[in-house]
C-alpha cells in the first residue's frame, strides 16, 4: 500500500491506497464523503465530478496517487459557513434537480464555469455541462438554475 496525503474540503487527510485506487474510492470508501457518485466508472457520465485544485475532473478515473498534496473540493465543501452556495440555492429554487443523483456533479461543473466566467451565455452553460449527464430534467431547468445563480452572484 501507498500513503496518500490530500486535502478535502479544507481538511487534511492521510489514507492508504493501492496502485489502482481512484480518487472517487478514496472519497467515498475511505472518507465517507458520498456526494460524488459511482455512475459509470469510465469517465462518461459526470456524477463523480469534483474540483481538484479548483479544476473540474472526474474522480472515477483520477488515480488517487496522482493527487498527492492536492486539494479536493466536493459538493459538501462549497457550503459557506452558515449559508449554502448561490448555485445550491438556484438549483433548489429553479427545480434544477429531480432525482438528485447527477446534482452534485452538475453543481460542481457549474461552479467551475462561474469561477472562470461569471456571466456565461446559455450556450456557454451548455458547453460547460456537456460532460454531465442527467436523465430526468431534459437539462432546461439545470441551465436555468446556473443562469439564475450567475445573476444572483453578480448582484
Amino acid at each position: 500500500m501507498h500513503t496518500l496525503e490530500l486535502t478535502v474540503n479544507g481538511q487534511g487527510h492521510k489514507v492508504e491506497v493501492g496502485l489502482k485506487t481512484t480518487l472517487l474510492e478514496v472519497l467515498r470508501d475511505k472518507l465517507h464523503i458520498t456526494s460524488p457518485k459511482v455512475g459509470c466508472n469510465t469517465g462518461d457520465c459526470g456524477t463523480c465530478s469534483v474540483l481538484l485544485d479548483g479544476v473540474l475532473v472526474r474522480s472515477c478515473i483520477t488515480n488517487a496517487l496522482s493527487v498527492q498534496g492536492k486539494s479536493v473540493t466536493t459538493l459538501e465543501g462549497i457550503i459557506e459557513p452558515g449559508d449554502i452556495h448561490p448555485l445550491q440555492k438556484a438549483f433548489h429554487e429553479n427545480y434544477g434537480s429531480q432525482c438528485g443523483f447527477c446534482t452534485p456533479g452538475m453543481i460542481l461543473a457549474s461552479k467551475a464555469l462561474l469561477d472562470a466566467n461569471p456571466s456565461p451565455t446559455r450556450d456557454e452553460v451548455k458547453e460547460a455541462l456537456s460532460g454531465n449527464l442527467c436523465r430526468c430534467t431534459g437539462y432546461v431547468k439545470i441551465i436555468d438554475s446556473v443562469l439564475a445563480a450567475a445573476d444572483e452572484m453578480k448582484s
Binding site: 457550503i79 445550491q88 440555492k89 438549483f91 433548489h92 434544477g96 446534482t103 452534485p104
Partner: peptide
C-alpha cells in the same frame, strides 16, 4: 421536500 438535501449532497 427533498430539494435542499439534493443540492447539499
Amino acid at each position: 421536500y427533498d430539494g435542499m438535501a439534493h443540492v447539499t449532497g
